[in-house]
Amino acid sequence: MSTALELRHVSKSFGRFHAVQDLSLSVPAGSVYGFLGPNGAGKTTTLRMILGMLSPDSGELSVLGSPSAMSVRNRVGYLPEEKGLYSKMTAASVIAYFATLKGLSSTRANQRARELLGRYGLGAFADKKVETLSKGMGQKVQVLASIAHDPELVLLDEPFSGLDPVNQEVLEDILVDLKARGCTILFSTHVMSHAERLCDRLIILGGGRGLFEGTVSEARSLLPIRITLETAEASPTLEILPGVHSMEAQSSNRWRLELEPGASASAVLEACFERSLRLRCFDVQDPDLHEVFVHLVGPSAREAALR
């Protein structure tokens, strides 16, 4: 699979503040890539460097095969974190305007604007001024404005923030449609469930550094599997179960086990049967992305928040 976007050892400082340090990532073409990190982790700075609005102090970038996003800007779409549109323009004209800036002809841009608004439930509002739209509608209009020119790579900074659950689903539909068309999507988010559902790969940033890069399941595997185990008889011998890293007794017949990295829950279950343990409960809890995120960035994020 070819690479749509690649960063190699990229750093950026503002005065004494190191916003991004030695960051490397690779986004396969056609994939959905999650950009996770707490506030101040360097997400927006990285996005601005990818877009060519900021120059990195060191390191290299490759955007759709070009060292600078400005030379391929018509193939890239961008939605910034803080959303805003021209309040006096109509929904259709504002989408068409941004599409013309990305190289579409005026006629084609207008067609695309109306087509997209119709497809995502805003057809009736095409000729309404942006100032009359609800916040959610305005945000959807802005998302549509960032993809109206059929970009190959879309960078979305916190696209879900401020949207109600229904509109979040609509936005997920938009992303799924884009992916189906072969578009590469990079989006930053604080909502881990979106990343789990949508991302093929993701990166977790903390303090301007890449703390993890890989698939969602690879991220989950960073934390041990936990098992809640309950037996019919009190105080059986559990120490010899395979792959158990630690064990916490919650009562005389109930335990919480934490497995060693790479150990499997099924091996533990098999061992229980071999020892003829009469199980009343065997509940396996895979770590979710939220836990992985907190585990990786928690200490530094908490420190930053208190500073």
Binding site: M53, S87, A145
Partner: peptide, 17 residues
């Protein structure tokens, strides 16, 4: 100021120099 306070500038600057 409208473009700056609305962050429209950021979108514009992803398309124009």
């Amino acid at each position: 100021i409208e473009e700056r306070s609305n962050r429209i500038l950021e979108v514009l600057l992803s398309s124009v120099t």
